[in-house]
Design a protein around this nucleic acid. Structure first.
Lengths: 182, 182
DNA sequence: CTTACCATGTAAGGCGTTACATGATTCA
DNA sequence: TGAATCATGTAACGCCTTACATGGTAAG
């Protein structure tokens, strides 16, 4: 019970809360988990079949729908597996900020180039912050519907806090670089 | 001139400023770039040889030293390559926060478990913030020695700002979870 | 009727880590 | 003299993304 694949845990975690198709899982990851996780279809679909083979989830066809949907449900073993993983200490938080990398070596290209990287980062951050603020509002409205919502809110607050810090930094960074240029 | 490997750019960026051995490059990454990048020997050493083969860096043995050191120097082509990459827009900033993942699914294991993950994260963050504050002080003292230092400072400030936000969030998150528990 | 989105999947390849292997040197 | 650190590398393997392949359906 070590070395759990993260993609398995992400999927089981989502399935713990509701039945989902692979497509829907991808959508959840692209929205709710976006600011701290990512995954592609190329990892999601094979992982789903693997989970079924290992008895951690079951698969059934959607009969009510016209579309060719495959709905996945977590099993008791799946829940047990997820809980075991949750107990283990965090192995590693990873970040690879290409923006920061380009900035670190920014001297090679000068302030203008660096500022344009910061501005692109700023724009992206602002947009995502808008989304998070919307998510926060919705979550606070239905906070008591489900205990799980408190945990979701926690991660949304994390995003809001860090994005706020990013934006503050963008301002100061641009200022520092503008001073260099003059 | 697309799809540059990041590890190449990291190495060239570091070599741009000074000659380094593979071992020293790893140390720089583990300290200066730690809070936004990472790399292992298994990627650094092969990349160095590859850079030499492509004419972007040169390798020489250290004669002054008793140790079996191989010192790498960036070439003009290497500088050109780095500058081209710096011009390109950032493709993607990646983060995979296992801590946040465990928290998102925290409802499955309850508040105590979640709080212990937060506390581990808090401890780690505090330690790294201490290091960053030291680095900031040093950098501010020699800010005018080299224009590049301003860019290094920029990334250090990024770390300080975001780590500060993390710590604030830890406090609030623990409070929210403690309220649940009672 | 065509564009966008829903929906599932595979194959190839890239990128990187972990673990291993080796040995010198410094310091207590 | 033994532990820590300096120093370089390789091999196996793992995980994931990108690109491709296919087709249904909803909305304008």
């Amino acid at each position: 019970m070590a070395n759990e694949k993260k993609i398995d845990c992400v999927i089981l975690g989502l399935l713990c809360h509701e039945e989902l198709t692979g497509y829907e899982i991808k959508k959840r990851i692209n929205t709710t988990l976006k600011y701290f996780w990512s995954a592609s279809y190329g990892s999601i679909y094979p992982a789903l079949n693997d989970l079924v083979n290992r008895g951690l989830a079951t698969k059934r066809e959607d009969t009510e729908n016209k579309r060719n949907k495959l709905i996945y449900t977590i099993t008791d073993d799946g829940r047990k597996y997820l809980k075991e993983w949750l107990k283990l200490p965090v192995v590693k938080d990873e970040l690879r900020y290409e923006t920061l990398l380009k900035l670190f070596f920014g001297n090679e290209q000068g302030a203008e180039q660096a500022i344009s990287h910061i501005e692109a980062f700023e724009e992206k951050t602002k947009k995502e912050l808008q989304y998070l603020l919307g998510a926060e509002k919705k979550l606070r409205e239905c906070l008591d519907d489900d205990i799980a919502h408190k945990y979701y809110l926690l991660t949304v607050e994390f995003g809001i806090k860090t994005y706020g810090a990013y934006l503050e930094w963008c301002k100061e960074a641009k200022k520092l670089l503008t001073d260099i240029g003059e």
